[in-house]
Design a protein around this nucleic acid. Sequence first.
RNA 1: GGGGGUGUAGCUCAAUUGGUUAGAGCGCUGCCCUGUCACGGCAGAGGUUACGAGUUCGAGCCUCGCCACUCCCGCCA
Length: 599
Amino acid sequence: MKRTHHCNQLRPAQIGQSVTLSGWVHSRRDLGGLIFIDIRDREGRTQTVFDPSDMAPELFQQAGLLRGECVVSVTGKVRARPAGTANPKIATGEIEIAAAALEVLNMADVLPFPVDDPEVARTVNEELRLQYRYLDLRRPEMARNLRLRSKVASATRVYFDERGFLEVETPTLFKSTPEGAREFLVPSRAQPGKFYALPQSPQQFKQILMVAGVEKYFQLARCYRDEDQRADRQLEFTQIDLEMSFIEREDIYELIEGLLRRIWKTALDIDVPAPFKRLTYQEALNRYGIDKPDTRFGLELADLTEDFRASKFKVFSGAIAAGGVVKAINAKGMADATQGQIETMTEYAKSFGAKGLAYIKVEKGEWKSPIVKFFNETEKQALSTKLKIEEGDLLLFAADQWLNACEILGKIRLYCADVLKTRGQLVLPANRFDFLWVVDFPLLTFDKEQNRWYSSHHPFTAPVAEDIPLLTTDPRKVRGQHYDIVVNGIELGGGSIRIHQPAVQKLVFEQVLQIPPDLVQARFGYMLEAFRYGAPPHGGIALGFDRLNAILCGASSIRDVIAFPKTAKGADLMTDSPAGVDPKQLRELYLEQKLPKKE
RNA sequence: GGGGGUGUAGCUCAAUUGGUUAGAGCGCUGCCCUGUCACGGCAGAGGUUACGAGUUCGAGCCUCGCCACUCCCGCCA
């Protein structure tokens, strides 16, 4: 019995037709002398009626045995529902199928959790959902996420095709290049003692493709990073990865703005305005305390360094004398925070390395604070002006080295925004998307513990041309031609213009990053060689495809937009992976196990 | 590696200060019911309180350990 329609197709126009529907028993309502069975498929659901006055007793009896999630085919005539019994909640609610035949394609055991009740299903323990993912994915919400993701992938492919990009697949069996994220290793059977590594990104291959003359490459690339996970980070994830030759940063901005506009239009029917705002790294830190600012709300950081340079309050003036800064935010309307809440915030700040969190509550025209007695009139005036102080405000301070002070207040800013959201004092519309580019990142960051410079982004990022001479003299000041795309405080992607001159690349590896020449040769020699045979200037970007879809779906975790995600410990609860292997398999790979001792 | 949260019936949740036989709704089973759509009514079954120790006259509750899930810090070139 092949189906003639799907379960969201029949309307009054089809009344009188004989049809067959196939799907799952969504719900049954057995009235004794009359049975209603709603059949559901991925498109929707349709009511069928089993009426004993109209059919063989065996058929009616069979219908009575059906249970939730049985798979059935029902054949019958489409008819209008009797007056007053239409169901306006579903699209097929004006009609029903008068069942004439029933084929039970498969029975179903009682489910471990309901999939037909969205209220309950939403709160079901995620552990259970992951164990029975095939049931979880039957839920309309999850089915919608899968479908949206597919549409976004299609729109992406169409967009890049229109722009002349080639979709090229790159290997997932790569080699280990242990700069950066920890890698998954894959032992080679054919070459004892040697290993592949799964790529953290197709970075090197896509640059080689530019040397190969592809000019415009893209891929929905699977990437692997053996690092601890988060709500927005999985061991394996997907990137919209691309690279172009003969371009500058502006070309990437234009391209990605177009892509995101296309995706938002396709997925949400929203017209995103372009060009996007741009912020330098410096400004992002200074104003928002983070390199991926959520600009949907204010609570911006103010700089008070000059106002407190000579202050009697030594915590401030001392930090400044040590080369640091004093920064503050005004948490509007939070003066009623309890001592406990302030304590919580202080502990929170300390967990990010703050020494403390000075505050002033502005209540009943008074400044209540343990520190305000140290301030003179000029200082108070400066605070008033720069922080636009009003009744009911809560001022929070950080005095530390510039980056620390900014980052601490950046975290506190987000924390305050959450509190204000919870209280209903800050409302962010679900359809608001603040896109922006963050640019002019420092090319290098100094690692105090290892006493060396490392790449802020990755070692292939090109310095801003005029900063190249500073590479060996003053690395701190070198700006990278790196850019991040941020939306609503989420880092959606990042990329850069790459180094295409082998001499500069070699200089960065050996002189700046201090990687021994033989290691450079072993790891990147093929790349340096490739660049000698005519490498075009090139650059690219990668966007987190899972994060992108989570944003579009309004999901709080990327697990909700990945069909079969892993838990925080990297387990797949459905298949029970990872799992042990047979000793024979290990022997074939020339591996021995040395497991940690349990105490 | 570190910090926080959660774990009680198939599911979602209760359970006073440590005190009687651990409850409710949904689901499930049986019976009744011809216009329901969260159908309704009656009856019933269903518990190693994640697991393991300990304290106590007595532990779902307190202590220690351990496991799983989750959020965060570190980590994520």
